[in-house]
């Protein structure tokens, strides 16, 4: 049996918001250590990997591994009904046909209970081994979201170029070009505002801007985002959770 209670429903709301435009159907795999999701978008270009660790829950119990096949659009309709500050509890039997979603207001005696039908989903799993990356950038997630949105208005591709001194985000479109250059710096007072650039080898990669626009929907989960890049390889975009992470792996574009 699964019983997981969040101190606030806001975390689950943000997670669903962050992934629902990339994937429609996915298995939530529940183990004693927490909840994981791996899912690939329909175009097979973007992969999400989610870990909501046991410590993200106020109370968590999962005796046997349980798979919840969830339609995220339906789940989102229910999850939006809770207030962000409500307790959120997910309950499922060992071989469940549905999952119970319970919201409890902390001040009033109001309990809202919903049941979501589960689906039997086939899922291919992609084996992602630990990769060696040539460059790692950590920056404020809101800044990355703004750069993505701004440059996406010019072109359907977004180029990321990393040199020793800086990282350049660049787009080249029909009516014009644009780029944003950031240098590494340390903000002592607000560490999350810092920009950190670690580069072993210079990087020049191009990605579909629409996929990065989906990735930055994770912005509300974390103050900062870490981008890991390797030549001619998928990039890793990571938003850290209080215990766990939401990672996006995005295949690049390049000439043969």
């Amino acid at each position: 049996m699964l019983e997981g209670k969040f101190e606030e429903s806001s975390l689950m709301k943000k997670v669903v918001d962050a992934i629902k435009d990339s994937v429609k159907l996915c298995n939530f795999n529940c183990t004693e250590h927490g909840v994981t999701v791996q899912a690939v978008d329909d175009s097979r270009v973007l992969l999400i990997s989610l870990l909501i660790g046991e410590a993200s829950f106020e109370e968590y119990r999962c005796d046997r591994n349980i798979t919840l096949g969830i339609d995220l659009e339906s789940f989102n309709k229910i999850i939006k009904n809770g207030n962000s500050s409500d307790f959120l509890t997910l309950i499922a039997e060992d071989s469940p046909d549905n999952v119970l979603i319970i919201f409890e207001d902390k001040k009033k005696d109001r309990v809202s209970e919903y049941s979501l039908k589960l689906m039997d989903l086939d899922s291919d799993f992609l084996q992602i081994d630990d990769m060696e990356f040539d460059a790692t950038i950590t920056m404020p997630s809101s800044e990355f979201a703004k750069i993505t949105r701004d440059l996406k208005t010019l072109s359907e591709s977004l180029q990321i170029i990393v040199t020793k001194e800086n990282v350049k985000f660049s787009s080249d479109g029909d009516f014009g070009t644009g780029n944003v250059v950031l240098k590494g710096f340390v903000d002592m007072d607000k560490p999350d505002e810092s920009i950190k650039i670690d580069m072993a080898r210079p990087i020049n990669l191009t990605f579909g801007a629409k996929y990065i626009a989906d990735i930055v929907k994770g912005t509300s989960l974390s103050e900062s985002v870490t981008i890991k890049l390797a030549d001619k390889s998928p990039a890793l975009f990571e938003y850290k959770l209080p215990s766990g992470f939401l990672r996006f792996y995005l295949a690049p574009k390049f000439d043969e």
């Binding site: 270009v45 291919d124 799993f125 992609l126 295949a251 574009k253 390049f254 043969e256």
Partner: peptide, 14 residues
């Protein structure tokens, strides 16, 4: 032309 790669070109399906 520049081509969009698929993840399966990089990772093994299990």
């Amino acid at each position: 032309a520049i081509n969009q790669k698929k993840l399966i070109q990089f990772y093994v399906k299990t």
